[in-house]
């Protein structure tokens, strides 16, 4: 981190017209392509290409929860596992979980536990496996989006499709869906998972509207972050890192 410090000042992340390095406006997403039902063995699956990210998600369940002592007699457990393939990043990642992936798995599980009608399947688990095949900043958000589609594809009853998007500050401005350079050299980043028309934990009563990851949701995410920046109520922040 220390050796990138001098570089930071050299890279101009926004031009005079508030266009970003890849030509996007501040509230513009990278191209997204979602395909459901891509795996045979899984009960549900999805592949998401989001900018340079490629993420697969598979859902197994509801199935008997193992080990048995984990079973909840009143509801299903939603267990997510986020994993990065060793070749998904520029420097090979050692296989297996690290602290980062364990944390992402935990918050992802929590995000989905809130929307799945878990009480319909007591004593079971709904297992969600997210595999990052190619990473380009925003993998957990692409993973959550893939997982939502895989859950729907598996026929899991839930309130809504959870979508997620990262936002951050570059050159002092709030921007959506940071790419790798912006993630590395920007001022701050955070991620939120939304469903319906509200961030997960902002305490407002649910107020419903269909959202598409491409426009409305993120437009609103953008406002939420501006509100955040202006000292309003914080949005549902899954993770916040400030460099």
């Amino acid at each position: 981190m220390v050796d990138v410090e001098p570089v930071e000042k050299e890279i101009q992340l926004l031009d005079a017209n508030e266009r970003r390095l890849d030509g996007r406006a501040l509230d513009e997403l990278r191209p997204i392509k979602i395909e459901a039902g891509v795996l045979r063995r899984a009960d549900g699956s999805a592949h998401v290409e989001w900018g340079g990210n490629r993420v697969l998600a598979a859902v197994y369940g509801p199935r008997e929860a193992h080990p048995r002592h984990l079973q909840d007699p009143a509801r299903a457990l939603v267990q997510c596992r986020y994993n990065m393939a060793p070749f998904s990043v520029s420097d090979r990642k050692r296989p297996g979980p690290d602290r980062r992936s364990v944390e992402i798995s935990k918050v992802t599980s929590e995000a989905f536990s809130a929307v799945v009608f878990t009480e319909q399947f007591p004593r079971t688990s709904v297992d969600v496996f997210i595999e990052v095949l190619q990473a380009d900043a925003g993998t957990r958000c692409a993973g959550i989006t893939a997982a939502a589609v895989a859950l729907a594809d598996a026929g899991i009853p839930m309130r809504d499709l959870v979508t997620a998007c990262a936002s951050g500050k570059i050159a002092g401005k709030v921007a959506l869906d940071l790419n790798k350079e912006e993630d590395n050299f920007g001022d701050a980043d955070d991620r939120a998972a939304d469903w319906g028309d509200r961030p997960l934990a902002d305490g407002r009563p649910p107020h419903r509207r269909r959202v598409r990851p491409s426009d409305e949701a993120l437009d609103r995410r953008h406002q939420a972050d501006l509100r955040d920046a202006e000292g309003g109520a914080p949005p549902a922040v899954l993770h916040r890192g400030v460099r």
């Binding site: 009608f117 729907a152 594809d153 026929g155 009853p157 839930m158 309130r159 809504d160 009563p205 649910p206 107020h207 419903r208």
Partner: peptide, 16 residues
């Protein structure tokens, strides 16, 4: 079946 009610409105809970 496959629906839920919230705030007086009916929503789908499933892909179907």
């Amino acid at each position: 079946e496959g629906t839920y009610v919230e705030g007086g409105k009916v929503f789908a809970s499933l892909l179907g």
